[in-house]
């Protein structure tokens, strides 16, 4: 059971949080002007990234605030958390590894 660092509360048990899917998928400005396909892309389609992924999380049983996180979907490690009004951090840099090479 991992700890998730809420940007407002600090590290808390993962059971306090709810997953909110891919981050940075804004509600379209003018849905009426979108084609059916464009609208369907917004409603139904999300990336299924292997590796670092920008996600939304909600501290459901804590402060109840939403925030964003960069998480590695292969290791489950949270590499950074950031507030909704923070810019998306670059996800290309090499992640800090939990492991270091044995002596």
């Amino acid at each position: 059971m991992q700890l998730i660092a809420c940007p407002w509360c600090g590290p808390r048990e993962e059971v306090e949080f709810h997953y909110g899917g891919q981050a940075h998928v804004p509600y379209p400005d003018s849905p009426a002007e979108l084609s059916d396909e464009e609208w369907a892309l917004y409603v139904f389609f999300r990336d299924n990234t292997k590796g670092r992924f920008a996600e939304r999380w909600n501290h459901t049983t804590g402060c109840r605030r939403w925030f964003n996180a960069i998480r590695d979907t292969t290791t489950y490690r949270f590499e950074s958390v950031y507030r909704l009004d923070d810019p998306k951090p670059p996800v290309t840099e090499l992640a800090r590894s939990r492991r270091s090479t044995a002596p």
């Binding site: 909110g20 804004p26 939304r56 909600n58 459901t60 109840r64 939403w66 909704l84 009004d85």
Partner: peptide, 13 residues
């Protein structure tokens, strides 16, 4: 309530 909060916080702050 969660639904309202989600929209207020994430889309319409």
């Amino acid at each position: 309530l969660d639904w309202m909060e989600e929209w207020v916080q994430t889309e319409w702050p």
